[in-house]
Amino acid sequence: MWAIETRGLRKVFRPLMGGNPVVAVDHLDLQVPVGTVFGFLGPNGAGKTTTIQMLIGNVYPTAGKAWVLGYPAGSIQAKKRLGFLPEKFQFHDFLTAEELLRLHGRLARMEPATLNRRIDEVLELVGLMERRKSKIREFSKGMQQRIGLAQAILHDPELVILDEPTSALDPLGRRRVREVIQYLKQRGKTVFLNSHLLSEVERSCDYVAILNKGRIVKQGTLDELLVNRSVVTIELSQVTPTIREALGRIAQKVQPIDERRIVVEVEQERQVPELARAVILAGGELISFQAQRESLEDLFIQTIEGESK
């Protein structure tokens, strides 16, 4: 069983007052394994939020099907098992943090004793224990995001969907969210994370899917997607044609920056030592050698730009 599964999911928005229909999601096939942290990436307008809205039952698909933990998306059974932090939300600001959580606990049909215990736990987890009696209107944007996260995990859901959870947070707040994600992962929960902060996704996620124009263009584990491809910046006393030629025999791409520096891209991480050897054998004087694994950001940009061409 998948935590999330979609088959041919499609959403077309038809403007009421004429105009062209907009295909927001186009035959989306997605499988999210249970117990993983899944990053859902894509440029603005790729259809990420629409997909999430279909998963939680707020938007009806035009075609295709979606299941959440084996139940049809949007069903009461599915909703019971998921927690959701929306990208844009507003809480009733006359409530205190504790009252807000109590309200959401009741809406989630939690038992009063469990609710009391969980309120303490989640407030501690998101670092708002000392502000439990403060009204939401007194909270900063970052604190509101954290109380939003608290309400999403309050009923101990099996799946947590986070739509841009770190957008309003400072680095400390982001670290707190990462810790919450790790805590959920350790407890066997599935986290579905939609974020533009690719470095955050890279640090938190096991699996990633990249969405563009409503379609999945890449999907897999981070290790699979960032296939050991490495970029190496080599500094020499002088870059000679012999050295360039020697590197070109190993590397996929050789790009001189100036007379002393050259950037080399190799397919496999294990090829990096070969580069050093090649430079020395070609008579080069090595000054510095900096290997860098391809980042998720590089992969994302390459994928989206490649799609656009």
């Binding site: 909703k79 929306p86 507003q90 959401h104 809406l107 989630a108």
Partner: peptide, 14 residues
């Protein structure tokens, strides 16, 4: 539009 229902609608309610 104001986002009040965004966190309520995903709750197990019809």
């Amino acid at each position: 539009e104001r986002g009040y229902l965004a966190a309520i609608l995903p709750r197990p309610l019809h």
